Computed example of a mutant assay.
Amino acid sequence: MFPNFIIIGAMKCGTSSLYHYLQLHPELGMSAIKEVDFFIEENNYNKGISWYQSQFQGDFKIFGEASPNYSKAHYFKGVPRRMYELVPRAKLIYLVRDPIERIISHYTHNYSEGREHRSIEDALQELEDNHYVMCSKYFWQLQHYFEFFQEDQMLIIPSYRLRDERRATLQQIFKFLGVDDSFYSNDFEQQMHKTNKKRRKGKLSRFILESPVIKTLKGYIPDSVKDPVKKAIRPEVTKPELSSATRVKLQEYLHADVDRLRTFSGLSLDGWEL
């Protein structure tokens, strides 16, 4: 069994929430793990097709997965080609968010995980080929799929619509996927991964939390146990503020890409800074 649709990103745009909501639909079977990353050579591609098929189990009309790393073409090469070779008729869903807000969220995530040690201003000193910025160049990322997939195989969803107009947005997605778009669950009202105060991993906490034993066990440990441990060993992280100069620099750098996304998608993207 192979997926009929794939959520290709973007990172920090609500892919975890959408994965959860789609799991609730009785006709949709989502992958056993959320971020399968199969089409990424450096990650799970070498595990083989049988391993990928094993991620899709059950009696469902269609299957899907969600791997935000699929829209990091500057970092992981060849994803659209591998995807097309295996599932050429798959439908693609791309969640997007205000590019600058996504960059701040991405930076905060990396900083809290202990992978980023610079200030946000230092991290954005150079914008060309900057990982944070490239992940927010949504049209540029999509262009890598145009060579293989047709436009009618792609659906672009602004994350604010999934947050503020959830029922209508999910109906749009269900219709795009060809399943019952009248389905509704009270669990759709739950906002997944609502932003809480981030906590930064230090060397000790990284050593503890990323050890093979803890990685294996943490999926079975309830939050009531994990949360006090996190508070004890991880200091709080405050969301950083961009300087006016850096914000303007980002607006100017990303403006053309956002304009191309608007033209391609027909979306107004109201509320974005650019």
Rank of each mutant, 00 (worst) to 15 (best):
M154E: 07
Q251R: 14
P228Y: 02
L269K: 00
K218Q: 05
R118Y: 09
Y21Q: 10
S105T: 11
C13G: 04
F39I: 06
C135M: 13
E147P: 05
L242W: 08
S17V: 08
Q153W: 01
L261S: 03
N69T: 05
R260N: 14
P80L: 14
D122Y: 00
Q55A: 04
L209S: 10
W272Q: 04
L127C: 09
H106Q: 14
K239I: 03
G114H: 11
I233C: 04
E85F: 06
Y70L: 00
L92M: 12
S185N: 06
F39G: 00
S112N: 05
L142D: 06
Y138A: 03
G219W: 02
S244M: 10
Y160E: 09
Q153H: 02
E189V: 08
A32S: 12
Y75T: 12
M154N: 01
L28K: 09
Q143E: 14
L267T: 04
V96M: 05
N130E: 11
A245P: 01
Y138H: 06
E241Q: 14
P99G: 03
Q251D: 02
T15S: 01
L95N: 09
D270V: 14
E273T: 10
L261M: 01
F63M: 11
N44G: 02
L250T: 03
Q125E: 15
Q125P: 01
T108W: 07
M30E: 13
Y160F: 09
E35H: 02
D164S: 05
N196H: 12
N110K: 15
P158N: 01
K61D: 09
Q153C: 05
I49Y: 08
V179M: 10
D98F: 04
K77N: 13
P88F: 12
N196T: 14
F56D: 10
H144T: 07
A32Q: 13
M192F: 11
A73T: 11
K91R: 15
Q251W: 06
S54N: 12
L155F: 07
F2H: 08
G14A: 08
A32N: 10
F264A: 01
S159D: 03
T15H: 03
H25A: 11
G178W: 09
G48D: 11
I233Q: 03
Y75H: 12
G271D: 08
N186L: 06
L204G: 05
I62N: 13
D270T: 15
E42L: 07
G178T: 08
F5K: 11
D187H: 14
A123D: 04
S71A: 14
S182Q: 13
E35D: 02
G58V: 10
S119K: 05
L204K: 09
S136E: 04
E147H: 11
F38I: 07
W272P: 07
G114I: 02
